[in-house]
Amino acid sequence: MARLTEANELVAREIIGRYPRPKSALIPLLHLAQEQDGWVTDDAMEHIAELVGVTAAEVLGTCSFYEMFKREPVGTYLVNICTNISCQLLGAEELLHHAEATLGVKAGGTTRDGLITLEDVECIAACTEAPCLQVNYRYRYKVAPEDFDRLVDDLRSGALVDEVPPHGTLHRTRQRIPTDRAAGAASPVGGREPAWIASRPAPAKDTP
């Protein structure tokens, strides 16, 4: 049960500062909490509520809408098998059944050792590479049952620790807006015509 660490609170404040209204940062901050703990804890949601200036209930309201936020612990590796149409046509349901039998868990379940959570997911935009899956949102294309077995072996042996970070870490490069280069968040209140529009007006239209 953890609030954001001091370092993460700094990151959170930097992210909040980019938005005209703090609440807009909610989803990125929930991802930050999930990156820190592997799932989104109640304490983290309360901390985020304080940072953003909304109630904890509002944070939970947003958090609970989105599939990727896990409000209970999941495996170190989340294996998401797409079974939507393009993948289904090329054997995704069979792949899912193979995965369930191999791991000994149904979709939605976590292996006893806490390493892998299996999910049956909707289209992940790799339709021409069907059937496909993601491990912590890293793609695997044209996955045959043998490929799946090899993937599980590699996850268990630790062969993929460099390529696949533990669940919660999404992109590993963060956007940084240097303060001397920032144009700044544009407040919705009291906005004025931008300088480059004002300095280059369209010629007046001839009125007929």
């Binding site: 980019r18 938005y19 807009s24 989803i27 990125p28 929930l30 991802h31 989105y66 599939e67 990727m68 936020f69 999404l170 992109h171 956007q175 807006i177 240097p178 001397d180 280069r181 920032a182 144009a183 700044g184 968040a185 544009a186 931008p194 300088a195 480059w196 300095s199």
Partner: peptide, 19 residues
């Protein structure tokens, strides 16, 4: 960002991501 290529055109482009 601010003063793009030395002009009076300034805009921040913010990466946002869903869930």
């Amino acid at each position: 960002g601010r003063g793009i290529l030395g002009s009076d055109f300034s805009v921040d482009v913010v990466l946002h991501w869903g869930a």
